[in-house]
Amino acid sequence: MADALQDAHDLQAEGVEDGLPVAPRVNRRAGQCAADAGPLFAELHRELGRLGYRSGTHYALAEQALERPVSSLAALSAEEAATVRSYAYGQLGLATGSVAA
Protein backbone atom coordinates (compact mmCIF):
# COMPACT_ATOMS: atom_id res chain seq x y z
CA MET A 1 0.00 0.00 0.00
CA ALA A 2 2.80 2.41 0.89
CA ASP A 3 4.48 1.73 -2.47
CA ALA A 4 1.27 2.63 -4.33
CA LEU A 5 0.99 5.86 -2.38
CA GLN A 6 4.61 6.73 -3.10
CA ASP A 7 4.09 5.98 -6.82
CA ALA A 8 1.04 8.27 -6.87
CA HIS A 9 3.04 10.99 -5.14
CA ASP A 10 5.91 10.60 -7.63
CA LEU A 11 3.51 10.88 -10.57
CA GLN A 12 1.96 14.04 -9.15
CA ALA A 13 5.41 15.52 -8.68
CA GLU A 14 6.15 14.82 -12.35
CA GLY A 15 2.99 16.57 -13.58
CA VAL A 16 0.93 13.40 -13.97
CA GLU A 17 -2.27 12.66 -12.11
CA ASP A 18 -4.34 9.51 -12.53
CA GLY A 19 -2.02 8.49 -15.36
CA LEU A 20 -2.73 11.65 -17.40
CA PRO A 21 -0.54 14.75 -17.83
CA VAL A 22 -1.59 17.68 -15.68
CA ALA A 23 -1.75 21.20 -17.07
CA PRO A 24 1.06 23.43 -15.89
CA ARG A 25 0.27 25.93 -13.19
CA VAL A 26 -0.13 29.34 -14.76
CA ASN A 27 0.69 32.63 -13.12
CA ARG A 28 -2.02 34.56 -14.92
CA ARG A 29 -0.92 37.95 -13.58
CA ALA A 30 2.55 37.50 -15.00
CA GLY A 31 1.30 35.59 -18.03
CA GLN A 32 3.75 32.79 -17.31
CA CYS A 33 3.54 29.06 -16.89
CA ALA A 34 5.93 26.58 -15.37
CA ALA A 35 9.26 26.65 -17.20
CA ASP A 36 9.06 22.99 -18.19
CA ALA A 37 5.68 23.52 -19.89
CA GLY A 38 6.88 26.38 -22.10
CA PRO A 39 8.43 24.21 -24.82
CA LEU A 40 5.30 22.02 -25.04
CA PHE A 41 2.99 24.92 -25.77
CA ALA A 42 5.54 26.78 -27.87
CA GLU A 43 5.65 23.65 -30.03
CA LEU A 44 1.85 23.77 -30.41
CA HIS A 45 2.16 27.38 -31.62
CA ARG A 46 4.92 26.34 -34.06
CA GLU A 47 2.94 23.37 -35.32
CA LEU A 48 -0.14 25.49 -35.94
CA GLY A 49 2.08 27.95 -37.82
CA ARG A 50 3.56 25.17 -39.97
CA LEU A 51 0.02 24.16 -40.86
CA GLY A 52 -0.57 27.68 -42.15
CA TYR A 53 -2.54 29.14 -39.26
CA ARG A 54 -1.45 32.71 -38.56
CA SER A 55 -0.30 33.35 -35.00
CA GLY A 56 -3.22 35.68 -34.33
CA THR A 57 -5.68 32.87 -35.04
CA HIS A 58 -4.27 30.22 -32.71
CA TYR A 59 -6.44 31.25 -29.77
CA ALA A 60 -9.62 31.47 -31.88
CA LEU A 61 -8.84 28.01 -33.26
CA ALA A 62 -8.40 26.66 -29.72
CA GLU A 63 -11.69 28.27 -28.69
CA GLN A 64 -13.48 26.61 -31.61
CA ALA A 65 -11.96 23.24 -30.81
CA LEU A 66 -12.70 23.40 -27.08
CA GLU A 67 -15.93 25.39 -27.30
CA ARG A 68 -14.81 27.73 -24.52
CA PRO A 69 -12.73 30.91 -24.20
CA VAL A 70 -8.94 30.41 -24.41
CA SER A 71 -6.61 33.23 -23.43
CA SER A 72 -3.39 31.23 -23.42
CA LEU A 73 -2.30 27.92 -24.90
CA ALA A 74 -0.11 27.50 -21.83
CA ALA A 75 -3.28 27.25 -19.74
CA LEU A 76 -4.44 24.17 -21.68
CA SER A 77 -4.07 20.69 -20.31
CA ALA A 78 -2.11 18.20 -22.41
CA GLU A 79 -5.41 16.56 -23.36
CA GLU A 80 -6.88 19.92 -24.47
CA ALA A 81 -3.73 20.71 -26.46
CA ALA A 82 -4.10 17.35 -28.24
CA THR A 83 -7.73 18.20 -29.01
CA VAL A 84 -6.69 21.56 -30.49
CA ARG A 85 -3.95 19.89 -32.55
CA SER A 86 -6.35 17.26 -33.87
CA TYR A 87 -8.99 19.89 -34.65
CA ALA A 88 -6.44 22.02 -36.54
CA TYR A 89 -5.43 19.12 -38.73
CA GLY A 90 -9.06 18.10 -39.23
CA GLN A 91 -10.00 21.58 -40.45
CA LEU A 92 -7.49 21.07 -43.25
CA GLY A 93 -8.70 17.56 -44.02
CA LEU A 94 -5.46 16.02 -42.75
CA ALA A 95 -4.71 13.19 -40.36
CA THR A 96 -3.19 14.49 -37.12
CA GLY A 97 0.58 14.71 -37.39
CA SER A 98 0.63 13.96 -41.11
CA VAL A 99 2.32 17.19 -42.16
CA ALA A 100 3.79 19.43 -39.51
CA ALA A 101 4.98 16.99 -36.89
Rank of each mutant, 00 (worst) to 15 (best):
E14M: 14
V16I: 08
V16C: 05
V16N: 02
V16A: 01
D18M: 04
D18Y: 11
D18S: 12
G19R: 02
V22K: 04
A23P: 03
P24C: 03
P24V: 06
V26W: 08
N27M: 05
Q32Y: 07
Q32M: 09
C33R: 14
C33S: 14
A34G: 08
A34R: 11
A35V: 12
D36N: 15
D36M: 13
A37V: 07
P39Q: 09
P39C: 00
L40N: 06
F41K: 09
F41Q: 13
A42P: 05
E43T: 14
E43F: 14
E43R: 15
E43G: 12
H45N: 10
R46L: 14
E47M: 08
E47T: 10
L48A: 04
G49E: 09
Y53W: 04
Y53F: 11
S55I: 05
S55T: 13
S55L: 10
S55Q: 11
G56S: 08
G56Y: 08
G56A: 05
T57V: 02
T57W: 10
Y59T: 14
Y59V: 14
A60R: 08
A60T: 06
A60C: 00
L61R: 03
A62N: 03
E63S: 13
Q64D: 13
Q64F: 02
A65W: 04
A65L: 02
A65T: 03
L66G: 05
R68M: 04
R68K: 12
P69T: 13
P69A: 11
V70K: 00
S71A: 10
L73H: 08
L73M: 03
L73S: 04
L73T: 01
A75I: 04
L76H: 01
L76A: 00
L76V: 00
S77F: 00
E79S: 09
E80R: 06
A81L: 00
A81P: 02
T83Q: 14
V84C: 04
R85F: 06
S86K: 06
S86P: 03
Y87S: 04
Y87A: 03
A88T: 12
A88E: 03
Y89D: 00
Y89L: 01
G90T: 14
G90P: 06
Q91C: 15
A95I: 01
A95C: 06
G97T: 13
G97M: 13
S98F: 13
S98Y: 11
V99N: 02
A100P: 02
A101T: 11
A101Y: 10
